[in-house]
Design a protein around this nucleic acid. Structure first.
Length: 486
RNA sequence: GCGGGAGUAGCUCAUUUGGUAGAGCGGUAGCCUUCCAAGCUUCAGGUGGCCGGUUCGAGCCCGGUCUCCCGCUCCA
Protein backbone atom coordinates (compact mmCIF):
# COMPACT_ATOMS: atom_id res chain seq x y z
CA UNK A 1 0.00 0.00 0.00
CA UNK A 2 2.84 2.35 0.85
CA UNK A 3 4.29 1.51 -2.54
CA UNK A 4 1.03 2.23 -4.26
CA UNK A 5 0.83 5.58 -2.52
CA UNK A 6 4.31 6.39 -3.79
CA UNK A 7 3.33 5.24 -7.23
CA UNK A 8 0.27 7.46 -7.15
CA UNK A 9 2.41 10.41 -6.07
CA UNK A 10 4.86 9.67 -8.84
CA UNK A 11 2.08 9.63 -11.40
CA UNK A 12 0.69 12.93 -10.12
CA UNK A 13 4.16 14.52 -10.31
CA UNK A 14 4.73 13.15 -13.75
CA UNK A 15 1.36 14.44 -14.88
CA UNK A 16 2.29 17.91 -13.78
CA UNK A 17 5.87 17.88 -14.96
CA UNK A 18 5.00 16.82 -18.49
CA UNK A 19 1.99 19.05 -19.00
CA UNK A 20 -0.86 16.61 -18.46
CA UNK A 21 -2.61 18.03 -15.40
CA UNK A 22 -2.07 21.17 -13.34
CA UNK A 23 -3.84 22.22 -10.15
CA UNK A 24 -6.36 24.89 -11.08
CA UNK A 25 -5.29 28.50 -10.51
CA UNK A 26 -2.01 27.23 -9.13
CA UNK A 27 -0.42 30.65 -8.81
CA UNK A 28 -3.10 31.42 -6.22
CA UNK A 29 -2.36 28.18 -4.35
CA UNK A 30 -4.86 26.19 -6.31
CA UNK A 31 -8.52 25.53 -5.84
CA UNK A 32 -9.41 22.41 -3.97
CA UNK A 33 -10.43 19.49 -6.14
CA UNK A 34 -10.28 21.45 -9.37
CA UNK A 35 -7.69 20.69 -12.00
CA UNK A 36 -6.69 21.96 -15.41
CA UNK A 37 -5.61 19.77 -18.29
CA UNK A 38 -2.39 20.92 -19.92
CA UNK A 39 -1.06 20.69 -23.42
CA UNK A 40 -0.57 16.92 -23.24
CA UNK A 41 -3.49 16.13 -20.97
CA UNK A 42 -6.04 17.90 -23.09
CA UNK A 43 -4.96 15.86 -26.10
CA UNK A 44 -5.19 12.61 -24.20
CA UNK A 45 -8.55 13.54 -22.76
CA UNK A 46 -9.89 14.54 -26.13
CA UNK A 47 -8.69 11.28 -27.64
CA UNK A 48 -10.49 9.28 -24.96
CA UNK A 49 -13.62 11.31 -25.50
CA UNK A 50 -13.51 10.94 -29.27
CA UNK A 51 -12.93 7.23 -29.00
CA UNK A 52 -15.92 6.80 -26.70
CA UNK A 53 -18.12 9.00 -28.87
CA UNK A 54 -17.21 7.14 -32.00
CA UNK A 55 -17.78 3.70 -30.56
CA UNK A 56 -21.06 4.69 -28.91
CA UNK A 57 -22.61 6.68 -31.73
CA UNK A 58 -20.87 6.45 -35.09
CA UNK A 59 -20.35 2.70 -34.95
CA UNK A 60 -23.90 1.96 -33.79
CA UNK A 61 -27.13 2.65 -35.58
CA UNK A 62 -29.26 2.72 -32.44
CA UNK A 63 -27.54 5.50 -30.47
CA UNK A 64 -27.42 9.21 -31.30
CA UNK A 65 -25.66 12.02 -29.49
CA UNK A 66 -26.74 15.35 -28.08
CA UNK A 67 -25.09 18.22 -26.26
CA UNK A 68 -27.44 19.69 -23.67
CA UNK A 69 -26.83 22.90 -21.74
CA UNK A 70 -25.33 22.88 -18.27
CA UNK A 71 -28.09 25.17 -17.01
CA UNK A 72 -31.47 23.54 -16.79
CA UNK A 73 -34.86 24.66 -15.60
CA UNK A 74 -34.82 24.49 -11.78
CA UNK A 75 -37.82 22.17 -11.74
CA UNK A 76 -35.65 19.57 -13.44
CA UNK A 77 -33.81 19.03 -10.18
CA UNK A 78 -36.98 18.82 -8.15
CA UNK A 79 -38.27 16.14 -10.50
CA UNK A 80 -34.99 14.23 -10.44
CA UNK A 81 -34.90 14.22 -6.66
CA UNK A 82 -31.62 16.15 -6.43
CA UNK A 83 -33.06 19.12 -4.57
CA UNK A 84 -34.48 16.97 -1.80
CA UNK A 85 -31.71 14.45 -1.55
CA UNK A 86 -28.72 16.73 -1.88
CA UNK A 87 -29.67 19.15 0.90
CA UNK A 88 -29.64 17.46 4.26
CA UNK A 89 -28.42 19.25 7.38
CA UNK A 90 -25.65 17.21 8.97
CA UNK A 91 -23.96 17.15 12.36
CA UNK A 92 -20.70 15.56 13.50
CA UNK A 93 -19.82 14.03 16.80
CA UNK A 94 -16.41 15.33 17.85
CA UNK A 95 -15.43 12.19 19.75
CA UNK A 96 -16.35 9.48 17.30
CA UNK A 97 -16.07 11.71 14.21
CA UNK A 98 -19.29 10.14 13.04
CA UNK A 99 -21.52 12.27 10.87
CA UNK A 100 -25.28 12.07 11.03
CA UNK A 101 -28.17 13.49 9.16
CA UNK A 102 -29.88 15.61 11.79
CA UNK A 103 -33.35 14.25 11.07
CA UNK A 104 -32.11 10.67 11.27
CA UNK A 105 -30.38 11.34 14.55
CA UNK A 106 -33.40 12.92 16.18
CA UNK A 107 -35.82 10.36 14.83
CA UNK A 108 -33.67 7.54 16.10
CA UNK A 109 -33.78 9.12 19.53
CA UNK A 110 -37.55 9.46 19.30
CA UNK A 111 -37.75 5.76 18.57
CA UNK A 112 -35.76 4.97 21.69
CA UNK A 113 -38.10 7.15 23.72
CA UNK A 114 -41.07 5.39 22.24
CA UNK A 115 -39.61 2.02 23.06
CA UNK A 116 -39.21 3.22 26.66
CA UNK A 117 -42.89 4.07 26.75
CA UNK A 118 -42.40 7.82 26.53
CA UNK A 119 -44.61 8.26 23.51
CA UNK A 120 -45.55 11.81 24.35
CA UNK A 121 -41.98 13.04 24.61
CA UNK A 122 -41.14 11.30 21.38
CA UNK A 123 -43.98 12.93 19.51
CA UNK A 124 -43.21 16.42 20.79
CA UNK A 125 -39.53 15.96 19.99
CA UNK A 126 -40.32 15.10 16.38
CA UNK A 127 -42.75 18.00 16.10
CA UNK A 128 -40.16 20.38 17.49
CA UNK A 129 -37.56 19.08 15.07
CA UNK A 130 -39.84 19.41 12.09
CA UNK A 131 -40.70 23.01 12.77
CA UNK A 132 -37.03 23.88 13.32
CA UNK A 133 -36.06 22.07 10.13
CA UNK A 134 -38.74 23.92 8.19
CA UNK A 135 -37.38 27.22 9.52
CA UNK A 136 -33.77 26.21 8.77
CA UNK A 137 -33.04 27.04 12.41
CA UNK A 138 -29.78 25.16 12.87
CA UNK A 139 -28.91 26.79 16.18
CA UNK A 140 -32.28 25.75 17.54
CA UNK A 141 -31.81 22.25 16.24
CA UNK A 142 -28.47 21.92 17.95
CA UNK A 143 -30.00 23.17 21.17
CA UNK A 144 -32.76 20.62 20.78
CA UNK A 145 -30.22 17.84 20.43
CA UNK A 146 -28.24 19.02 23.44
CA UNK A 147 -31.26 19.62 25.67
CA UNK A 148 -32.55 16.14 24.94
CA UNK A 149 -29.10 14.75 25.58
CA UNK A 150 -29.09 12.89 22.30
CA UNK A 151 -25.83 11.00 22.23
CA UNK A 152 -23.76 9.54 19.49
CA UNK A 153 -24.34 5.83 19.16
CA UNK A 154 -20.64 5.19 18.72
CA UNK A 155 -18.96 7.42 21.26
CA UNK A 156 -21.92 7.80 23.58
CA UNK A 157 -21.14 11.48 24.07
CA UNK A 158 -23.09 14.62 23.38
CA UNK A 159 -20.11 16.55 22.05
CA UNK A 160 -21.44 17.86 18.73
CA UNK A 161 -20.20 20.26 16.10
CA UNK A 162 -22.49 22.93 14.75
CA UNK A 163 -25.05 21.80 12.26
CA UNK A 164 -24.14 22.44 8.70
CA UNK A 165 -26.00 22.16 5.51
CA UNK A 166 -24.22 20.34 2.76
CA UNK A 167 -25.64 21.37 -0.53
CA UNK A 168 -24.05 19.16 -3.09
CA UNK A 169 -25.36 21.21 -5.99
CA UNK A 170 -23.73 24.46 -7.01
CA UNK A 171 -26.25 27.25 -7.30
CA UNK A 172 -25.93 30.52 -9.13
CA UNK A 173 -28.17 33.38 -10.12
CA UNK A 174 -29.98 33.58 -13.38
CA UNK A 175 -30.66 37.06 -14.67
CA UNK A 176 -29.03 40.30 -13.69
CA UNK A 177 -30.96 41.01 -10.49
CA UNK A 178 -29.68 39.06 -7.54
CA UNK A 179 -31.01 37.83 -4.27
CA UNK A 180 -34.34 36.53 -5.44
CA UNK A 181 -34.98 32.89 -4.75
CA UNK A 182 -36.78 32.53 -8.07
CA UNK A 183 -33.59 33.34 -9.92
CA UNK A 184 -31.69 30.40 -8.51
CA UNK A 185 -30.37 27.91 -11.03
CA UNK A 186 -28.04 25.01 -10.47
CA UNK A 187 -25.03 23.79 -12.32
CA UNK A 188 -26.09 20.29 -13.28
CA UNK A 189 -24.85 17.60 -10.89
CA UNK A 190 -25.21 14.98 -13.61
CA UNK A 191 -25.65 15.06 -17.36
CA UNK A 192 -28.40 12.45 -17.47
CA UNK A 193 -31.28 14.88 -16.98
CA UNK A 194 -30.36 16.77 -20.15
CA UNK A 195 -31.00 13.53 -22.00
CA UNK A 196 -34.28 12.74 -20.26
CA UNK A 197 -35.85 16.12 -20.92
CA UNK A 198 -34.89 15.78 -24.58
CA UNK A 199 -36.14 12.24 -24.93
CA UNK A 200 -39.18 13.10 -27.04
CA UNK A 201 -37.37 15.79 -29.04
CA UNK A 202 -34.79 13.29 -30.16
CA UNK A 203 -37.19 10.40 -30.57
CA UNK A 204 -39.57 12.39 -32.77
CA UNK A 205 -37.13 14.42 -34.85
CA UNK A 206 -34.76 11.50 -35.28
CA UNK A 207 -37.67 9.08 -35.90
CA UNK A 208 -36.03 6.80 -33.37
CA UNK A 209 -37.63 3.48 -32.49
CA UNK A 210 -37.32 1.93 -29.07
CA UNK A 211 -34.92 0.44 -28.20
CA UNK A 212 -32.52 3.30 -28.83
CA UNK A 213 -30.02 5.38 -26.91
CA UNK A 214 -28.95 8.99 -26.50
CA UNK A 215 -25.32 9.73 -25.70
CA UNK A 216 -23.76 12.83 -24.27
CA UNK A 217 -20.39 14.05 -23.07
CA UNK A 218 -20.33 17.03 -20.76
CA UNK A 219 -19.38 18.73 -17.56
CA UNK A 220 -21.15 18.15 -14.27
CA UNK A 221 -20.58 19.79 -10.90
CA UNK A 222 -20.81 18.51 -7.36
CA UNK A 223 -19.90 20.30 -4.20
CA UNK A 224 -18.24 17.27 -2.66
CA UNK A 225 -17.75 17.41 1.07
CA UNK A 226 -14.41 15.72 0.76
CA UNK A 227 -12.92 15.94 -2.67
CA UNK A 228 -9.49 14.43 -2.99
CA UNK A 229 -7.41 11.80 -4.69
CA UNK A 230 -6.34 13.92 -7.61
CA UNK A 231 -8.74 13.85 -10.55
CA UNK A 232 -10.57 10.86 -9.14
CA UNK A 233 -13.08 13.03 -7.31
CA UNK A 234 -13.35 16.57 -8.57
CA UNK A 235 -15.86 19.32 -8.06
CA UNK A 236 -16.04 19.95 -11.77
CA UNK A 237 -15.85 16.80 -13.81
CA UNK A 238 -16.86 15.38 -17.13
CA UNK A 239 -19.20 12.48 -17.76
CA UNK A 240 -19.64 10.36 -20.85
CA UNK A 241 -23.02 8.91 -20.60
CA UNK A 242 -25.69 7.13 -22.55
CA UNK A 243 -29.32 6.51 -21.71
CA UNK A 244 -30.80 3.55 -23.53
CA UNK A 245 -34.60 3.55 -23.78
CA UNK A 246 -36.24 0.14 -23.82
CA UNK A 247 -39.62 -1.50 -23.68
CA UNK A 248 -40.74 -2.15 -20.08
CA UNK A 249 -39.99 -5.72 -19.11
CA UNK A 250 -36.89 -5.95 -21.29
CA UNK A 251 -34.71 -3.82 -19.05
CA UNK A 252 -32.97 -6.75 -17.37
CA UNK A 253 -31.80 -8.16 -20.67
CA UNK A 254 -30.56 -4.78 -21.86
CA UNK A 255 -28.91 -4.16 -18.54
CA UNK A 256 -27.01 -7.42 -18.95
CA UNK A 257 -26.16 -6.48 -22.53
CA UNK A 258 -24.70 -3.10 -21.64
CA UNK A 259 -22.89 -4.42 -18.63
CA UNK A 260 -21.03 -6.80 -20.91
CA UNK A 261 -20.70 -4.36 -23.77
CA UNK A 262 -19.13 -1.63 -21.70
CA UNK A 263 -16.53 -3.91 -20.16
CA UNK A 264 -15.58 -5.08 -23.65
CA UNK A 265 -15.03 -1.46 -24.66
CA UNK A 266 -12.41 -1.11 -21.94
CA UNK A 267 -10.71 -4.36 -22.76
CA UNK A 268 -10.60 -3.51 -26.48
CA UNK A 269 -8.34 -0.60 -25.58
CA UNK A 270 -5.79 -3.10 -24.40
CA UNK A 271 -6.36 -2.50 -20.71
CA UNK A 272 -5.91 -5.82 -18.92
CA UNK A 273 -8.91 -7.80 -17.67
CA UNK A 274 -7.36 -8.34 -14.24
CA UNK A 275 -7.52 -4.61 -13.61
CA UNK A 276 -11.29 -4.68 -13.98
CA UNK A 277 -14.10 -6.07 -11.91
CA UNK A 278 -17.82 -5.62 -11.50
CA UNK A 279 -19.28 -4.42 -8.27
CA UNK A 280 -22.98 -5.18 -8.13
CA UNK A 281 -24.99 -2.85 -5.95
CA UNK A 282 -26.93 -4.53 -3.19
CA UNK A 283 -28.48 -1.34 -1.88
CA UNK A 284 -30.06 0.36 -4.84
CA UNK A 285 -30.71 4.04 -5.36
CA UNK A 286 -34.33 5.08 -5.27
CA UNK A 287 -34.63 5.06 -9.05
CA UNK A 288 -32.91 1.79 -9.89
CA UNK A 289 -33.95 -1.83 -10.18
CA UNK A 290 -30.43 -3.04 -10.92
CA UNK A 291 -27.05 -1.37 -10.81
CA UNK A 292 -23.38 -2.17 -10.92
CA UNK A 293 -20.07 -0.40 -11.17
CA UNK A 294 -17.23 -1.30 -13.42
CA UNK A 295 -14.28 -0.86 -11.12
CA UNK A 296 -10.70 -0.29 -12.15
CA UNK A 297 -7.60 -1.14 -10.17
CA UNK A 298 -6.22 2.37 -9.68
CA UNK A 299 -3.02 2.90 -7.68
CA UNK A 300 -5.40 3.79 -4.85
CA UNK A 301 -7.17 0.45 -5.20
CA UNK A 302 -10.24 -0.79 -7.02
CA UNK A 303 -12.58 2.16 -7.50
CA UNK A 304 -15.64 2.98 -9.54
CA UNK A 305 -14.84 3.94 -13.10
CA UNK A 306 -18.18 3.45 -14.78
CA UNK A 307 -21.72 2.76 -13.64
CA UNK A 308 -24.40 0.72 -15.36
CA UNK A 309 -27.83 1.41 -13.94
CA UNK A 310 -31.25 0.13 -14.80
CA UNK A 311 -33.18 3.28 -13.91
CA UNK A 312 -36.68 1.98 -14.69
CA UNK A 313 -39.08 4.68 -15.87
CA UNK A 314 -38.39 6.75 -12.76
CA UNK A 315 -36.88 9.78 -14.49
CA UNK A 316 -39.30 10.07 -17.40
CA UNK A 317 -42.22 9.47 -15.09
CA UNK A 318 -41.03 12.19 -12.72
CA UNK A 319 -40.61 14.64 -15.58
CA UNK A 320 -44.03 13.76 -16.88
CA UNK A 321 -45.49 14.50 -13.47
CA UNK A 322 -43.65 17.78 -12.90
CA UNK A 323 -43.93 19.11 -16.44
CA UNK A 324 -47.46 17.83 -17.08
CA UNK A 325 -46.20 16.74 -20.50
CA UNK A 326 -46.69 13.13 -21.50
CA UNK A 327 -43.38 11.33 -21.86
CA UNK A 328 -44.72 8.25 -23.56
CA UNK A 329 -43.81 6.40 -26.71
CA UNK A 330 -46.15 4.57 -29.05
CA UNK A 331 -44.73 1.18 -29.93
CA UNK A 332 -46.06 -0.18 -33.22
CA UNK A 333 -44.31 -3.52 -32.92
CA UNK A 334 -46.68 -6.41 -32.49
CA UNK A 335 -46.75 -8.15 -29.15
CA UNK A 336 -46.78 -11.88 -29.96
CA UNK A 337 -48.75 -12.54 -26.78
CA UNK A 338 -51.73 -10.45 -27.87
CA UNK A 339 -51.26 -10.09 -31.60
CA UNK A 340 -51.61 -6.32 -31.18
CA UNK A 341 -49.09 -3.46 -31.02
CA UNK A 342 -47.45 -2.85 -27.67
CA UNK A 343 -49.00 0.63 -27.73
CA UNK A 344 -48.22 3.56 -25.44
CA UNK A 345 -45.81 3.32 -22.58
CA UNK A 346 -43.10 5.26 -20.76
CA UNK A 347 -39.86 3.56 -21.74
CA UNK A 348 -37.53 2.05 -19.20
CA UNK A 349 -33.96 3.25 -19.18
CA UNK A 350 -30.61 1.55 -18.91
CA UNK A 351 -27.83 4.02 -18.26
CA UNK A 352 -24.10 3.72 -18.82
CA UNK A 353 -22.15 6.51 -17.22
CA UNK A 354 -18.38 6.79 -17.20
CA UNK A 355 -16.27 9.50 -15.64
CA UNK A 356 -14.03 10.92 -18.34
CA UNK A 357 -11.51 12.16 -15.81
CA UNK A 358 -11.49 8.79 -14.12
CA UNK A 359 -10.95 7.09 -17.44
CA UNK A 360 -8.08 9.49 -18.02
CA UNK A 361 -6.61 8.49 -14.68
CA UNK A 362 -7.12 4.80 -15.45
CA UNK A 363 -5.36 5.11 -18.79
CA UNK A 364 -2.56 7.23 -17.34
CA UNK A 365 -1.92 5.09 -14.29
CA UNK A 366 -1.94 1.89 -16.28
CA UNK A 367 0.37 3.37 -18.89
CA UNK A 368 2.90 4.68 -16.37
CA UNK A 369 5.99 2.54 -15.95
CA UNK A 370 9.40 3.09 -14.47
CA UNK A 371 11.84 0.77 -16.18
CA UNK A 372 15.33 -0.19 -15.15
CA UNK A 373 17.46 -0.46 -18.28
CA UNK A 374 20.78 -0.92 -16.54
CA UNK A 375 23.51 -3.02 -18.06
CA UNK A 376 26.52 -4.36 -16.15
CA UNK A 377 28.55 -1.30 -17.15
CA UNK A 378 25.97 1.40 -16.87
CA UNK A 379 23.01 2.37 -14.77
CA UNK A 380 20.04 3.42 -16.82
CA UNK A 381 16.33 3.83 -16.46
CA UNK A 382 13.36 5.42 -18.15
CA UNK A 383 9.83 6.50 -17.39
CA UNK A 384 7.50 5.48 -20.17
CA UNK A 385 3.80 5.99 -20.71
CA UNK A 386 2.52 3.01 -22.65
CA UNK A 387 -0.64 4.57 -23.96
CA UNK A 388 -2.69 2.74 -26.54
CA UNK A 389 -1.44 4.47 -29.73
CA UNK A 390 -4.89 5.78 -30.60
CA UNK A 391 -5.03 7.64 -27.28
CA UNK A 392 -1.47 8.98 -27.23
CA UNK A 393 -1.25 12.79 -27.25
CA UNK A 394 1.56 12.76 -29.82
CA UNK A 395 1.62 9.94 -32.36
CA UNK A 396 4.97 10.48 -34.00
CA UNK A 397 8.11 12.46 -33.23
CA UNK A 398 10.54 13.23 -36.01
CA UNK A 399 14.12 13.67 -34.88
CA UNK A 400 17.04 14.63 -37.08
CA UNK A 401 20.15 12.88 -35.86
CA UNK A 402 22.05 16.11 -36.26
CA UNK A 403 20.83 19.66 -36.52
CA UNK A 404 22.87 20.45 -39.59
CA UNK A 405 23.76 18.93 -42.95
CA UNK A 406 20.19 19.25 -44.18
CA UNK A 407 18.72 16.66 -41.82
CA UNK A 408 16.27 19.07 -40.11
CA UNK A 409 14.82 20.02 -43.49
CA UNK A 410 14.05 16.40 -44.32
CA UNK A 411 12.50 15.92 -40.89
CA UNK A 412 10.24 18.93 -41.30
CA UNK A 413 9.17 17.67 -44.72
CA UNK A 414 8.09 14.41 -43.15
CA UNK A 415 6.06 16.25 -40.56
CA UNK A 416 4.36 18.33 -43.22
CA UNK A 417 3.19 15.27 -45.07
CA UNK A 418 1.85 13.60 -41.92
CA UNK A 419 0.38 16.32 -39.76
CA UNK A 420 -2.97 16.32 -41.51
CA UNK A 421 -3.43 12.72 -40.41
CA UNK A 422 -2.13 12.73 -36.86
CA UNK A 423 -0.24 14.84 -34.35
CA UNK A 424 3.51 15.05 -34.93
CA UNK A 425 6.31 16.57 -32.92
CA UNK A 426 9.69 17.91 -34.01
CA UNK A 427 12.78 18.05 -31.83
CA UNK A 428 16.41 18.68 -32.69
CA UNK A 429 17.92 19.58 -29.35
CA UNK A 430 20.10 17.27 -27.25
CA UNK A 431 21.38 13.81 -27.95
CA UNK A 432 19.16 11.36 -29.73
CA UNK A 433 18.93 9.12 -26.67
CA UNK A 434 17.71 11.98 -24.53
CA UNK A 435 15.08 12.87 -27.07
CA UNK A 436 13.85 9.27 -27.11
CA UNK A 437 13.49 9.40 -23.34
CA UNK A 438 11.54 12.60 -23.48
CA UNK A 439 9.15 11.07 -25.97
CA UNK A 440 8.81 7.96 -23.80
CA UNK A 441 7.81 10.18 -20.90
CA UNK A 442 5.04 11.67 -23.04
CA UNK A 443 3.90 8.31 -24.34
CA UNK A 444 4.71 8.93 -28.00
CA UNK A 445 4.47 5.53 -29.68
CA UNK A 446 6.73 6.26 -32.67
CA UNK A 447 10.00 8.12 -33.03
CA UNK A 448 11.31 8.61 -36.54
CA UNK A 449 14.99 9.44 -36.89
CA UNK A 450 16.48 11.09 -39.95
CA UNK A 451 20.15 10.17 -40.39
CA UNK A 452 22.81 10.42 -43.06
CA UNK A 453 21.61 7.34 -44.85
CA UNK A 454 18.27 9.10 -45.34
CA UNK A 455 19.92 11.53 -47.70
CA UNK A 456 21.04 8.67 -49.89
CA UNK A 457 18.12 6.27 -50.00
CA UNK A 458 15.09 8.11 -48.57
CA UNK A 459 14.72 5.74 -45.64
CA UNK A 460 14.49 6.51 -41.94
CA UNK A 461 14.46 4.49 -38.75
CA UNK A 462 11.24 4.15 -36.83
CA UNK A 463 11.60 3.34 -33.18
CA UNK A 464 8.84 1.64 -31.21
CA UNK A 465 8.21 3.03 -27.77
CA UNK A 466 7.43 -0.19 -25.91
CA UNK A 467 10.10 -2.47 -27.37
CA UNK A 468 12.64 0.29 -28.07
CA UNK A 469 13.36 -1.62 -31.29
CA UNK A 470 14.04 0.21 -34.51
CA UNK A 471 13.43 -0.69 -38.10
CA UNK A 472 14.41 1.05 -41.29
CA UNK A 473 11.57 2.02 -43.57
CA UNK A 474 11.12 4.24 -46.62
CA UNK A 475 9.85 7.74 -45.84
CA UNK A 476 6.99 7.14 -48.24
CA UNK A 477 5.59 4.37 -46.04
CA UNK A 478 5.65 6.26 -42.75
CA UNK A 479 2.23 7.77 -42.91
CA UNK A 480 0.46 4.48 -43.61
CA UNK A 481 2.54 2.69 -41.02
CA UNK A 482 1.45 5.01 -38.25
CA UNK A 483 -2.13 5.26 -39.46
CA UNK A 484 -2.42 1.48 -39.33
CA UNK A 485 -1.42 1.48 -35.68
CA UNK A 486 -4.08 4.02 -34.74
C1' G B 1 -15.44 18.12 8.74
C1' C B 2 -11.99 15.48 12.53
C1' G B 3 -6.90 13.58 13.65
C1' G B 4 -1.73 13.28 11.92
C1' G B 5 2.18 15.09 8.48
C1' A B 6 4.12 18.64 5.05
C1' G B 7 4.88 23.53 2.36
C1' U B 8 12.63 26.81 0.55
C1' A B 9 14.19 27.65 -7.67
C1' G B 10 10.10 23.73 -12.69
C1' C B 11 11.76 18.83 -9.73
C1' U B 12 14.63 16.47 -5.42
C1' C B 13 16.69 18.63 -1.36
C1' A B 14 20.49 21.56 1.79
C1' U B 15 21.10 25.99 4.76
C1' U B 16 24.89 23.18 12.30
C1' U B 17 22.02 27.13 18.49
C1' G B 18 17.41 33.19 14.62
C1' G B 19 22.20 37.38 11.40
C1' U B 20 20.05 39.79 4.47
C1' A B 21 19.50 31.55 0.65
C1' G B 22 22.85 27.12 -1.96
C1' A B 23 23.50 22.39 -4.85
C1' G B 24 22.13 18.58 -8.20
C1' C B 25 18.73 17.59 -11.89
C1' G B 26 15.65 20.27 -15.30
C1' G B 27 15.25 24.77 -18.57
C1' U B 28 17.83 28.36 -21.98
C1' A B 29 21.79 29.87 -25.56
C1' G B 30 26.11 27.93 -27.70
C1' C B 31 30.21 24.22 -28.40
C1' C B 32 31.41 18.99 -28.88
C1' U B 33 29.44 14.24 -30.00
C1' U B 34 26.07 11.42 -33.10
C1' C B 35 21.02 5.99 -32.64
C1' C B 36 18.87 5.22 -26.54
C1' A B 37 19.31 10.08 -20.53
C1' A B 38 23.22 12.87 -17.01
C1' G B 39 30.86 16.15 -21.73
C1' C B 40 32.16 21.76 -21.69
C1' U B 41 30.63 26.94 -21.36
C1' U B 42 26.56 30.88 -20.83
C1' C B 43 22.29 32.70 -18.85
C1' A B 44 17.62 32.73 -16.46
C1' G B 45 14.92 31.36 -12.19
C1' G B 46 13.40 32.16 -5.00
C1' U B 47 9.60 39.04 -1.37
C1' G B 48 11.54 30.66 1.87
C1' G B 49 2.83 29.16 0.83
C1' C B 50 0.28 33.71 2.72
C1' C B 51 -0.88 37.32 6.88
C1' G B 52 0.43 38.98 11.54
C1' G B 53 3.43 38.82 16.22
C1' U B 54 8.14 38.43 19.21
C1' U B 55 13.23 40.43 18.12
C1' C B 56 18.18 45.26 16.67
C1' G B 57 17.43 41.20 13.13
C1' A B 58 13.16 35.27 11.27
C1' G B 59 13.19 30.40 6.19
C1' C B 60 14.36 28.99 11.32
C1' C B 61 10.41 31.00 17.44
C1' C B 62 4.77 32.08 18.30
C1' G B 63 -0.43 32.79 16.39
C1' G B 64 -3.67 32.64 12.38
C1' U B 65 -4.76 31.26 7.45
C1' C B 66 -4.40 28.66 2.68
C1' U B 67 -2.94 24.42 -0.07
C1' C B 68 -1.33 19.39 -0.49
C1' C B 69 -0.60 14.30 1.48
C1' C B 70 -2.14 10.03 4.90
C1' G B 71 -6.11 7.96 8.02
C1' C B 72 -11.29 8.46 9.36
C1' U B 73 -15.87 10.29 7.52
C1' C B 74 -18.84 11.14 3.17
C1' C B 75 -19.94 9.55 -1.67
C1' A B 76 -26.43 8.85 -7.00
Amino acid sequence: MANDTQLFQAIISHAKEYGFIFPSSEIYDGLQAVYDYGQMGSELKKNIKDHWWKSMTQLRDDVVGIDAAIFMHPTTWKASGHVDNFNDPMIDNRDSNKRYRVDHLVEAHAETLKAAGKEKEAASLVTAMESLLAADDFTGLKKLIEENRINCAVSGTCNWTDIRQFNLMFATEFGATSGEEDNKVYLRPETAQGIFVNFLNVQKTGRMKVPFGIAQVGKAFRNEIVARQFVFRMREFEQMEMQFFVRPGTQQQWYAYWKEQRLQWHLALGLPAEKYRYHDHIKLAHYADAACDIEFDFPIGFKELEGIHSRTDFDLRQHQEYSKKKQQYFDNDVDPATGKPYGNYIPYVVETSIGLDRMFLAVLSHAYQEQDLSTPDKQDSRVVLKFPPKLAPIKMAVLPLNKKDGLPEIALDIINTCKQDFRCFYEEKDSIGKRYRRMDALGTPFCVTVDYQTKEDQTVTIRHRDSMQQERVPIARLRDLVNEAL
